[in-house]
C-alpha cells in the first residue's frame, strides 16, 4: 500500500513561547522545532503498515526550509521518500488548516496514495481540521481519532476513540484519510544507521499551487493568557468536598 504521511513541524515542547515585537506571530528566533507529536504517531502507524503488508511511505510537509529537518527525521525512521511543499510567510506557519489542506491536496493528487495518515491535531495551533478538510477537498472518506488500523484489500477497518472509554469500529473504502491519535504505540527511534541511510533518500521540492496561498483565516494579533488566581474553599463533609472537587475538575478545569 502506498501511504502518504502529512507532517507538521512545531515549536519544541516545554520551551517558553513569546509573541514577536509586532505581536503578529510568535518569536521564532529562540525556538527549536520538532515533529508534531500526533504526526509522529501517524508516521509510526504508516511504517508499521508497511512492515506488515509492504508498500511505500512518503512523508510530506508544507512550510519553510526548516521543515526539511522533520522530513529528514521521517526518512531516518524509515519513510522511503519525502516531499517538501515550499511555502513562505503566513502560509508557512500552518495556522490556517484550509490552506495547509489545499497544499497537501496538491501532493496527494500527484502521488495518488491509497491512504493518507496525519496526526489528529497539531501541538501548536491545535485546530484538528487539516486531515478532515483534506479529505473533503479530495472527496475521500475519512476517520478521525484513529487508534488502530487493519488493512484489507480495498478497504481499511479502523478503531476510533470516542468519549468516556467508548470505541467505534468503522470500515472505509480506499483511498481514505485517517487522523491518528497520539500515544497509540511506542515510537521508534531514528537509529544512527537510519540517519545515515536517510542522507541518500530524496526530498522532492514542490511548488505550491498558485491558488493555494492567501485568503482564508487572517491572524490579527497574539495575546498571552492573563494569569488569574482564584482560591475557592469547598465546604461540607470530606465526601461532599470530594464530589464538588471532581465536578470542578471535570466541568470547570476540564482535566478529568
Amino acid at each position: 500500500m502506498k501511504i502518504l504521511v502529512a507532517l507538521k513541524q512545531v515549536p519544541a515542547r516545554d520551551l517558553p513561547v513569546e509573541a514577536d515585537a509586532a505581536r503578529a506571530w510568535i518569536d521564532e528566533s529562540s525556538l527549536s522545532h520538532e515533529m508534531n507529536e500526533p504526526d509522529a504517531y501517524a508516521l509510526e502507524a504508516a511504517l508499521q503498515l508497511k512492515e506488515s503488508s509492504g508498500g511505500e511511505v512518503v512523508a510530506v510537509s508544507a512550510g519553510q526550509a526548516r521543515v526539511q529537518s522533520a522530513l529528514r527525521e521521517a526518512l531516518a525512521k524509515g519513510a522511503d521518500r519525502a516531499i517538501h511543499i515550499q511555502v513562505e510567510g503566513e502560509a508557512a506557519r500552518g495556522t490556517d488548516p484550509s490552506i495547509t489542506a489545499k497544499l497537501l491536496e496538491a501532493a496527494v493528487r500527484e502521488e495518488q496514495p491509497q491512504l493518507v495518515l496525519t496526526g489528529l491535531q497539531s501541538d501548536d495551533t491545535g485546530s484538528g481540521q487539516t486531515g478532515v478538510i483534506l479529505a473533503a477537498r479530495l472527496g475521500w472518506p475519512h476517520a478521525t481519532l484513529v487508534v488502530a488500523i487493519e488493512p484489507g484489500p480495498d478497504s481499511v477497518r479502523v478503531k476510533r476513540e470516542l468519549e468516556a472509554g467508548w470505541f467505534q469500529h468503522v470500515t472505509l473504502p480506499l483511498p481514505a484519510v485517517l487522523t491518528i491519535q497520539s500515544g497509540i504505540s511506542r515510537l521508534r527511534y531514528a537509529t544512527l544507521m537510519g540517519i545515515k541511510r536517510a542522507k541518500t533518500k530524496e526530498i522532492r521540492l514542490m511548488e505550491p499551487p498558485a491558488d493555494a496561498v492567501g485568503g482564508g483565516l487572517r491572524l490579527t494579533g497574539l495575546a498571552e493568557p492573563r494569569r488569574q488566581r482564584q482560591t475557592q474553599f469547598l465546604e461540607g463533609s470530606p465526601a461532599e468536598q470530594a464530589a464538588q472537587l471532581v465536578e470542578k475538575l471535570r466541568f470547570e478545569a476540564r482535566v478529568l
Binding site: R13, S32, E34, Q68, S69, R72, E73, Y189, T191, I195
Partner: peptide, 24 residues
C-alpha cells in the same frame, strides 16, 4: 525537560543531520 545548553548559538554551526543524531 532537558534541552541541552546553547548560549552562543553554537547549534547554528550544526547540520540538520548532526542535530538529528544528537536528538535521537
Amino acid at each position: 525537560a532537558y534541552h541541552g545548553f546553547d548560549y552562543l548559538l553554537v547549534d547554528s554551526q550544526l547540520s540538520d543531520e548532526e542535530k538529528l543524531v544528537r536528538q535521537t
